[in-house]
Simulated scan of single mutants.
Amino acid sequence: MKIEGNLFVVTGGAGGIGKEVVRTIVAQKGHAVIFDLNAAFGKTVSEELGEKNAFFPGSVDCTDEAQVENALEVSLKYFEGVPLAGTIVCHGVLFPPPSLTGYGPTGMLTGYKQFEFYVKVNLLGCYLVAQKVAEKLIKNDPFNEDNERGIIITTTSISALDGTMVGYGTAKSGVAGLTLPLAKELAPHGIRVMSIAPGPFDTPILDPFPGGSPPCPFPKRIGKPHEFADLCVSIINNAMLNGSVIRLDGAFRFNDYVDNN
């Protein structure tokens, strides 16, 4: 499947890796819809790239079914005649808001409300967007001889695969675990599902991380957003990539980091 001439919904598209995905889609002559809570940032990205290329339908809470449905309908009407080809789900939270406290002697153990917050945003929000987009994709005419009708790319984390961070890691484990079952469910309809598990990337999500993130073994740095976006392009272009999770981490392992700190 190709990007040029097609439409993709990008969640978290107003910042971090999501913003870079939006820019890359536009650079590839595709069109992007930005789903993001941050109205100011969403408008800025849309204005920078041109509304005819990157449309921001207004603030969208990806955990709210009505908001997601409405934003999708508004966006499809705006891009009438442009085929919806898929979604790249990039939104997520690494740290809970200060109002949600933990428990234990120092308050650093994961409290139920914190756990609930991670699951709602990182797992349920991911599935909500994926399902609502899939509902549209199954109605597509096939894009190619493989009868491909679209693609869903989600973002999990190496934290999920390395077994760290109770709330965040468990929610992202759900995203990773969703990949193959959803790919099998949607396979008869010609829709692929892939997930990317990034290591530390140079985005604002790492700003509150205590002491910053150490570099990867090689290359000896953290990831750059365009490297995530480039992988999305490769996944979209390669029809045999389906039902799998790809680590994008420069050989970084959370357990090595924990053992050395």
Rank of each mutant, 00 (worst) to 15 (best):
V74A: 06
S75P: 04
L76N: 00
L76I: 00
K77A: 08
Y78G: 00
Y78M: 00
F79M: 03
F79L: 04
F79A: 01
E80P: 00
G81P: 00
G81T: 00
V82K: 09
L84E: 02
L84Y: 07
A85P: 06
I88A: 13
I88C: 13
V89W: 02
V89G: 06
V93M: 11
V93E: 13
V93N: 09
V93P: 02
L94E: 11
L94C: 03
L94Q: 13
P96R: 01
P97Q: 04
P98D: 14
P98Y: 08
P98A: 13
S99E: 15
G102N: 10
G102A: 11
Y103S: 10
Y103P: 02
G104D: 11
P105C: 08
P105G: 06
T106Y: 12
G107T: 11
G107R: 13
T110V: 13
G111L: 12
Y112C: 04
Q114C: 03
F115A: 10
E116M: 02
F117P: 00
Y118V: 04
V119G: 01
V119A: 06
K120V: 01
K120H: 02
G125K: 04
C126E: 06
Y127T: 03
Y127S: 03
L128W: 05
Q131H: 11
Q131V: 02
Q131M: 04
K132A: 03
V133A: 06
E135L: 07
N140S: 09
D141A: 15
D141N: 14
P142D: 05
F143G: 08
N144L: 06
E145D: 14
E145C: 01
E148Y: 04
G150L: 10
I153T: 09
I153A: 12
T154W: 08
T155W: 12
S157I: 11
S157P: 11
S157K: 12
I158K: 10
I158T: 15
A160G: 11
A160F: 05
A160I: 04
G163C: 11
G163W: 12
